[in-house]
Design a protein around this nucleic acid. Sequence first.
DNA 1: AACGGTCATTGATCGATGTCAATTAGGGGC
DNA 2: GCCCCTAATTGACATCGATCAATGACCGTT
Lengths: 242, 242
Amino acid sequence: MTNDLHPFQDCSNCPINEMALCSKCDDDERDQIKAIRTIQTFAPGQDITVQGQSNGLVSTIVEGVATVSRIMEDGQRQVAGLLFPEDIVTRPGESVASVDIVAKTPVTLCCFERGQFEDMVEEIPHLASRLSEIAFDERDEAREHLFLLGRTTSTERLASFLAYLLHRKNRRVGPTQVIRLPLSRDEIGSFLGLALETVSRHLNAFARKGMIEIVDSRKIRILDLTALENAAGSVPLRAEAS
Amino acid sequence: MTNDLHPFQDCSNCPINEMALCSKCDDDERDQIKAIRTIQTFAPGQDITVQGQSNGLVSTIVEGVATVSRIMEDGQRQVAGLLFPEDIVTRPGESVASVDIVAKTPVTLCCFERGQFEDMVEEIPHLASRLSEIAFDERDEAREHLFLLGRTTSTERLASFLAYLLHRKNRRVGPTQVIRLPLSRDEIGSFLGLALETVSRHLNAFARKGMIEIVDSRKIRILDLTALENAAGSVPLRAEAS
DNA sequence: AACGGTCATTGATCGATGTCAATTAGGGGC
DNA sequence: GCCCCTAATTGACATCGATCAATGACCGTT
């Protein structure tokens, strides 16, 4: 974790200007925000928050992918969500983390001291309004995943997951075929409520059917998106106002 | 659906004053809110929103229970969440419903015309701040349910579900033993990712073990909460700042 | 290049839970 | 009170996916 000189220290380099917390703010407001903002980075595997530990910052992801997880009583880590750029890491009004947030790629955060942030939200309606938008987006995101888990077969879940990752990536960088899996087989299994072996088997089954190509264990090329979406079955994939 | 004279038309009768959207507002702000607010009621089984249909209102639940669900391609209704008093039914900034919200008990809503609501949020920071709080609460609620579904065994899921209902009820009305199930066996199954038969079997198994008493099919008395929580296993039950 | 550790793959087995099916219980209308 | 319809229960059976286990691939270290 560092907060030294970082390219994003200059907001004009910010990769998520369009959808950031400050995206509704005018120049004056942005200056105000910029004055109290810090940039932090985390290496893959590092904990960003730890359940039960207090945390004085409110932050959003600027770059990278992180998981939302908890260690259950049996010692297993249970993954309940993925965080992408624009997502909120630690919510306002909660000084003790209720989940673990773990970086899965190099992660860059735009951070605010909690008290300062809350004051600022009271003063800048554009910020408050964007904040609740993001919160609702995350709520809906979680709900979508609940619908996905409602699907009974493991094939449907996995196919949906791949389609979702592709969708999420395309939204940011434009049409691609190759996605990088931010999670191990084990973590994917945890996220989808499946055993890691089941994940592995179905991935390779998709490859044998020509739907995907496993470039390496973390890199997947989507060869036939239609077939994948069919395999995903009835899951209505994130209805969004694109 | 009516918006005739209703006791809650007078905010002093509002059962959720403490946690309502307006709970952070002062008297002046409340007057402003009250001026544009309407009360609507729905009978059990009625649709409050329908996926894909436009909806000009933003509303919160004042009384009653509703489900968040979707009809999947196979025609089955998939339940992804429960809505209790204080929850938001239709989010601001979304004019077309992304899910079905269905009343499961008599439901009373506190409603605002969308445009008016959004203007008001910009003007009243206390409202904006409470709004995002609620949104984050709902996000966390959905995440908790994701953790629950991560638990593999059906016993754990069902026991957690009962403990959750009790918890949710106690939070509003104080200590009780008897909970009214707002859902049929089928709907519980859908919510927990189980077959209705599995739900029925485990419920009766709990009863045989003396953990609960099935008063009637919709009414459960919790006899041994500790045993129930043990059966719920490692699910860390909604960590909350009570 | 050999070693050790982690992660992924593949195979074989077993059991929990879904599915199918039949019965019973409850609730509303007349 | 009787009938009908829906929901819940209970039983029997089949199956998907978890679990156990062994092998293989990859990566960093020395």
